[in-house]
Simulated assay, not measured.
Amino acid sequence: MVYYLAGYLLKIFLSLFGFLKVYQKENLPKDGYVIACTHTGWVDILWLGVSILPTKINYMAKKELFESTFLKWLMENLNAFPVDRENPGPSSIKTPMRLIKEGKIVGIFPSGTRTSEDVPLKRGAVTIASYAKAPIVPAAYVGPNNFKELFNWQRPKIIFGKPIHLNKDLPKKEALDVMMTELNEAMKTLQQKLR
């Protein structure tokens, strides 16, 4: 309940600065998948969640965001779950796998950090999707990245690519490498389409 209330209030608030344009939403599967999105600022996290309402996204978030009582409450009500990025344990895979198998969506930012530069993607999204036997939907965001940029009235845009599936005809390691390459190329192509 809190998720939907917060989501729609957030959508109204963010729309005061420019309406979100969403492209290729028809590429989203019905349920049980990973969304891997570009990550250039904290606002893209909010817009990604708003872009597929009423469907919920379960976000992986660094464990430091759960240390204060208020932030822990907020993260949990935004369907985020903690991950230790320095020492990822079994729960880093088990929690998102369980969510996907329940038909839920897991949102991951594979660059691992907010950046506008071309950085190598981390393998978490691919690993989780392969273990959960689920597709990855590449996504890209272009628009304001912080409060200051919100006031520039730059229109936010999100685009979804076609789902990427693990090639079952290849050996596992090779299939993961191919999936990683496809994801990286798809995210770059999608971002270029929005510019």
Rank of each mutant, 00 (worst) to 15 (best):
G103T: 14
P29L: 10
W153C: 03
T127C: 08
A125Y: 10
I93C: 01
L176H: 09
L28A: 04
Q24A: 09
W47P: 00
N77R: 01
P135K: 13
K133N: 02
T40P: 00
S92Y: 14
E102P: 14
D118G: 12
K30A: 14
G32Y: 14
P96Q: 01
R195A: 15
L166I: 13
T115W: 00
V83N: 02
A80P: 07
K172C: 14
K122P: 08
W73Q: 12
I159L: 04
L166C: 11
E149D: 06
V119A: 05
A175M: 05
K173W: 15
D177F: 10
S130L: 03
V22S: 07
L78K: 00
L16E: 09
V43A: 14
G143F: 00
P88C: 11
K94C: 10
H39K: 05
T38Q: 04
L14Y: 13
M180K: 15
M60D: 06
N79F: 09
K25V: 03
G7V: 06
G161L: 15
C37M: 12
V34H: 08
N27I: 11
S92F: 14
M179L: 04
P120Q: 04
N146K: 13
D84F: 09
V22P: 08
T115N: 08
A140C: 05
A6R: 02
K25Y: 13
